[in-house]
Design a protein around this nucleic acid. Structure first.
Length: 545
DNA sequence: CTGGGGATGGGGCCC
DNA sequence: TGGGCCCCATCCCCA
């Protein structure tokens, strides 16, 4: 990013929404911060009114949290008696609200459907109806627009809906998936004694609160129900706009264009959408939301149902899925070796054909891979742009530096260092480093300048990893061993960040334009700044002492 | 421990 | 939207 450019940088935290929900659920189970207790036929369920208001139209209205409602409502209801909803169904709906997973017995499906309808939890109601195969009867009376396939088909013509439904179908909706447990019912959230001792203030029952029919007749219905439900916003297909009674003023959402509708779930001001597929979706379509410029255009990210990882790029999910299934559909006709990907097989075939399409311009060597040539060229140039920040040993390859850093030998040379003053977390430093290899600014972790953690659980940061504030003894932890990140002043930094740091040091000395040039070339700046950087660090050590 | 080759998986671009 | 192709980062293995 050029100086002075005040571009917005979208830094996604894909784990945030799921972690948030998880912690809220933990609080609910522990009875912490619960400001609402639901009761049903003697069973008590401590919960949070904000969560309930976010997930349920009934509670949203009850607490005045509806858009256009009385601000700061809350209705004063601390205990809400919901005898009209069966305890098991209420339990399941609460579980859904906090885990994005509906776990119910098939025999209890109808109770859950009724509860979801009464409470205005549209996506659950839709899913239950789908499973029950209901198109008429009670559901139809309450949802008169659900007239049947013809009507759905008509609705499905809307472009936005087609996209949503397709996405749902191609990406199993993890967040609000419906698990129909035909044997056991989740006992995880069995009724708990409420920590509150408020005397029940009887709110209007959901049956009394007139939940209007969904406004589908006028084409306001957002689209056909997708099998399995859940929409791109993680199933929080907030029904509020289409559930608003006709006599109410049109909600502000109505002005949204199709593109803007994709931002619903954020714009509604309710619970953050509960999957990071939605997060990514938001990021992917951010350009249409008018919220600013994102570097990455939409690549139709999809969420892996196994590892939850967001896979960017159209058609890339099947490829990724083979890493889980072990399926290797591409077999070498010459040696029988199988590969998960066709392009890998193609490269493999070069071994049999003798094709080495990457010749070195300086010597007769030829290579199978472009990156082999790249590595090889560094031998000719003698460039060793990857320097260990501790022992200053330089390497021609980044992975060799990482391997080196995994070892402890370099620690014998110097065991202390610290991040540059003001370079650790500052916006300036981040921007200065952002042009480094492979990591665009929007990929940076704003706290530690780490590239985004891969979403596979393997790479989840471990709770035990301590990031020290000040540089002390540098002992690479297991985390560093696995991820090959370097330690600088006990702040974990991947090596590109270290290079950025060094670039920044140079920039402080007046090399700003060179920095730009380096960014433009998209590569690491070569080694020559080592001496400069070393001087600076030494100076700093001197100052510290 | 290091240098080098190869394998693997993800993302971008394009058709 | 799916898939091909390419590049990149990272890892593993061997000398």
């Amino acid at each position: 990013m050029s100086p002075g450019e005040d571009g917005l940088i979208g830094i996604p935290f894909p784990e945030h929404s799921s972690e948030l929900l998880s912690r809220l659920n933990a609080q609910r189970r522990a009875g912490l911060l619960c400001d609402l207790t639901l009761t049903s036929r003697g069973a008590r369920y401590p919960t949070h009114r904000s969560v309930m208001a976010a997930v349920s139209v009934y509670f949203r209205r009850l607490f005045g949290a509806e858009e256009g409602g009385e601000a700061g409502g809350g209705g004063g209801f601390s205990v809400c008696q919901l005898d009209c909803v069966a305890p098991d169904a209420l339990d399941a709906l609460l579980e859904f609200a906090y885990t994005a997973t509906l776990t119910i017995r098939s025999s209890g499906m109808r109770d859950v459907l009724r509860g979801a309808q009464l409470l205005g939890i549209q996506c659950v109601a839709d899913a239950c109806r789908d499973i029950l195969g209901e198109t008429g009867g009670e559901a139809d009376r309450e949802m008169p627009e659900e007239r049947g396939p013809a009507e759905r088909k008509k609705c499905s013509r809307r472009k936005i809906d087609r996209r949503r439904v397709t996405k749902v179908e191609s990406t199993p909706p993890l967040s609000h998936r419906l698990i129909v447990n035909t044997h056991t019912h989740s006992s995880a959230s069995s009724p708990q004694p409420s920590p509150h001792s408020h005397s029940p203030t009887q709110p209007p029952s959901p049956e009394e609160v007139e939940l209007p029919p969904r406004a589908g007749q006028n084409g306001e219905r957002k689209g056909p129900r997708a099998t399995g439900r859940a929409g791109v916003n993680g199933g929080m297909d907030w029904p509020q706009d289409r559930l608003l009674p006709p006599q109410l003023p049109p909600p502000s959402n109505d002005r949204l264009s199709d593109g803007e509708e994709e931002m619903e779930g954020v714009g509604n001001g309710g619970l953050p959408s509960s999957t990071f597929s939605s997060l990514v979706e938001q990021r992917g379509v951010a350009g249409t939301g008018g919220g600013g410029v994102r570097k990455r255009k939409s690549q139709t990210p999809q969420q892996c149902p196994v590892c939850q990882k967001i896979i960017h790029g159209a058609g890339k999910l099947p490829r990724h899925m083979r890493t889980h299934t072990g399926e290797k559909p591409f077999q070498c006709t010459a040696c029988g070796v199988r590969f998960t990907r066709n392009d890998k097989l193609k490269i493999h075939m070069r071994k049999h054909t003798g094709e080495r399409p990457y010749p070195c311009p300086h010597c007769p060597a030829r290579f199978l891979h472009s990156y082999d040539l790249k590595n090889h060229l560094s031998l000719h140039s003698g460039a060793r742009p990857f320097e260990c920040p501790l022992c200053h040993k330089a390497f021609a390859r980044e992975d060799h530096l990482q391997r080196h850093r995994k070892g402890l030998s370099c620690l014998e040379v110097r065991t202390r260092a610290r991040p540059r003053r003001g370079a650790g977390n500052g916006e300036e430093g981040r921007a200065a480093r952002a042009g480094g290899r492979g990591h665009s600014p929007d990929q940076l972790d704003p706290l530690e300048n780490l590239p985004p953690q891969p979403q596979t659980s393997t790479f989840l940061p471990r709770p035990g990893v301590v990031v020290h504030e000040e540089g002390t003894q540098l002992l690479p932890g297991e985390d560093e061993r696995e991820r090959g990140v370097a330690l600088l002043g006990a702040h974990r930094l991947p090596y590109p960040s270290l290079l950025w740091l060094s670039q920044e040091l140079r920039g402080r000395g007046g090399g700003g334009e060179e920095e730009e040039a380096d960014e433009a070339s998209g590569g690491h700046s070569p080694a020559p700044q080592h001496a400069r950087w070393e001087e600076e660090v030494e100076e700093e050590i001197g100052e510290e002492e």
